[in-house]
């Protein structure tokens, strides 16, 4: 059953692993060497983290698998929006709060 599905191959796993190693090493190096100013550095390492998340989702977790419609992808996308709302919203709301004090 389900053998027609694509479960990834050794190649995709190795590729994904190499990408992840790279995307972990780069920000580490950036931070230790202090190559940019603080804001630029923060933004770039966050972006790299998001990139690595995408790599893992595609190469390791095979989110493209599964029958259509892909409800799990919809749930993940909506989840990402909510995660952003929670984190960014809290920071937004709470920093104003601490300036008032």
């Amino acid at each position: 059953m389900g053998s027609h599905e694509n479960h990834g191959s050794a190649k995709t796993y190795i590729l994904g692993f190499l990408f992840s190693l790279l995307l972990t090493a780069i920000p580490l190096w950036l931070v230790i060497q202090h190559v940019m100013n603080k804001t630029a550095l923060t933004v770039s390492i966050l972006l790299i983290a998001v990139l690595q998340l995408i790599i893992q989702f595609f190469f390791f977790m095979h989110i493209r698998e599964g029958e259509k419609p892909r409800f799990h992808v919809m749930a993940l996308v909506l989840g990402a929006v909510m995660v952003f709302t929670i984190v960014a919203g809290s920071i937004w709301i709470m920093t104003f709060n601490s300036q008032v004090h």
Binding site: L78, M82, T85, W92, I93, M94, F96, N97, Q99, V100
Partner: peptide, 21 residues
């Protein structure tokens, strides 16, 4: 169901989170 997630601050307007919030 989705928009309901974006209104929570109306329960503590008086906290002083600032005008634009």
């Amino acid at each position: 169901s989705v928009l309901g997630y974006f209104t929570w601050v109306h329960h503590f307007f008086t906290m002083g989170a600032g005008a634009d919030v």
